[in-house]
Design a binder for these strands. Structure first.
Lengths: 230, 230
DNA sequence: TGTACATCAGTGAACGCGCGTTCACTGATGTAC
DNA sequence: TGTACATCAGTGAACGCGCGTTCACTGATGTAC
C-alpha cells in the first residue's frame, strides 16, 4: 500500500483548519471531519458561518470531495444542527445530576426543572453560535427534526420533569397538558434576548439576576395560583 | 429644467422592484426609497435577504448611488432594523386601545398586559421576516439601539403597563424591579419558537392554544404566589 | 496466495453567480453677485 | 432677472472576492476467483 506523506496537501488557510493526519489517499472519516469543521465554524459565527468549501479545506480535502458525503450545503448544515441539538440535550441531561438531590420529592422535581432551565441558558451563553445554529430556520423545513426533538431532545427532558411535578403535586394535573410550551418559551426567550438581543449589553451580574428573576416568575406560573385576581 | 422620462432607466429585474417615478435626474428621496426596498426584502426573507445592490435596483438607481446615503451595507440594515422595531412598538401601542377597557382597574391593567403580548406575537406571525430583522444580531453592536428601545420601544410599553399593575395591586411593589425581563422573555421566546422553531410545524389552532396557555402561565407568574411550595 | 476488476472516494479545474465597494466622471441644482 | 460657479447626487464600469456546484478524471480498496 502506497501512503501519501502526512500533510502532503496544500496548506490550508482557513482559520478553522484542523490538520487531519491524512495517511492515505482515502480520508477514512471524511463525513465526520467535515461535520467537525462545520461545527467549529458554527460555534464561532453561527449558522451563516458554515461554508462548505471552508469545511473541505479544513479537512484537507478538495471541495468536490464533500459531495461524496453530503448532497449539498444544506445537508451539511442540518448535520451541524443535529449535533448542536444533541449537545444541548446532553448538557441539560447532565445538569440534572450536578447538584445533590433534595429529600422532599416536590422540591426535588422543582430543583430539576430549574436545573434544566439553567443548563439551557448556560449553553446559550457559552456557545451562542451553536445555540443559534440549533434553532436556525431550516431552508426546507424537515418535520423529522421536530419529531426527534420531541422524543429525545430538550423537549422530552422538559416533558419528563413536568410529569414529575404532576406526580408530586406541584403542578395540577389539569394544567399539565401543553405546559411544555410556556416553560420552554420563557427560557428560550431569555436565552435569545441574552445572546442576540438587548440583554446582551448588560453586565454578567445583571444577566445572572435576570436569569434568577425569570425562573422565579416561571416557577410561580407553573405552580399555579390559589387566589387568582381575575 | 430638463426632465428625464419616467421609467427611463434599465428595467429592474429584482422581485422587489418598485418603480419610483423618477421625473428628474435626482431622485428626491433616495434614502427612503432604498430603505423601503430593503424593508420589503427583509419582510420577505429576513435580515439576510437585504441586498444593497438589489435595493438600488429596486429604486431604479445605480448601486453606487446608495453610498451617497448609507455608509455601507450594515448602515442600511440598521435602518431597516430601526423601522422594524418602530413598527412593532406601534402595533403594540395600537393594541392597547383595540378592546373595550374594563371597569376594574386591576383587570384593566391585566387586559393591557395581555394585549401587548398578543400584539407582539401577532406581529411576529404576520411579519416574521421583519420580526427577525428587528432582533437580528448587529454586526457591530450599537448600544444606541438598546437605549432607544428602553425609552420608546416595546420595552418602554411593557414597563408602563407593569407600573400600572403595581399601582392597582396586581403586582407586589417589591417584585416589580426587573419584571420586564421575565415577561418579555416569555413572549419573545414564544414568538421565536412559533416562527423559526419547532412550534412552526403545529397547526394554527394549536398555536393559538399555545399562546393562551403561555399568557396564563406568565400572568400567574406576574401575579405572584400566596402559598409557595418552596 | 496472487491477480483482474468493479467500486468507491478522492482530485483539480472550471462555471456562473452576485455581492459589496471604489473610482473618475457628469448632469442637475441652487446661490451669490 | 440673468449668469458663473461650487456643490451635490447621480452614472457606469470595474475590482476582487469567494461561494456552491459540476465534470471528467484517477488513485486506492476490497472481493471473487
Amino acid at each position: 500500500v502506497q501512503h501519501y506523506g502526512v500533510m502532503a496537501v496544500s496548506p490550508g488557510r482557513g482559520s478553522y483548519h484542523r490538520r487531519h493526519h491524512r495517511t492515505s489517499y482515502h480520508h477514512g472519516d471524511l463525513a465526520n471531519a467535515l461535520a467537525d469543521a462545520a461545527t467549529e465554524m458554527a460555534r464561532t459565527g453561527g449558522p451563516n458561518a458554515i461554508v462548505l468549501r471552508a469545511a473541505a479545506r479544513a479537512a484537507g480535502v478538495s471541495a468536490a470531495a464533500a459531495y461524496r458525503h453530503f448532497a449539498d450545503h444544506d445537508e451539511l448544515l442540518q448535520e451541524v444542527r443535529r449535533r448542536a441539538l444533541d449537545s444541548l440535550a446532553a448538557a441539560m441531561r447532565r445538569s440534572l445530576d450536578e447538584e445533590e438531590p433534595l429529600a422532599d420529592p416536590a422540591e426535588e422535581s422543582l430543583r430539576r426543572l430549574r436545573a434544566l432551565g439553567r443548563a439551557y441558558i448556560r449553553f446559550a451563553l457559552e456557545d451562542p453560535g451553536l445555540f443559534r445554529t440549533a434553532f436556525c430556520r431550516p431552508d426546507n423545513p424537515v418535520p423529522d427534526a421536530a419529531k426527534r426533538m420531541a422524543t429525545q431532545g430538550p423537549y422530552a427532558l422538559l416533558s419528563g420533569v413536568l410529569d414529575e411535578l404532576v406526580e408530586h403535586g406541584v403542578l395540577d394535573a389539569d394544567r399539565r397538558a401543553g405546559a411544555e410550551i410556556p416553560a420552554w418559551a420563557s427560557v428560550h426567550g431569555l436565552a435569545t434576548l441574552l445572546i442576540d438581543g438587548p440583554l446582551a449589553q448588560i453586565t454578567p451580574e445583571e444577566q445572572a439576576r435576570a436569569v434568577e428573576r425569570s425562573s422565579d416568575f416561571m416557577l410561580n406560573g407553573i405552580k399555579g395560583h390559589r387566589d387568582p385576581v381575575a
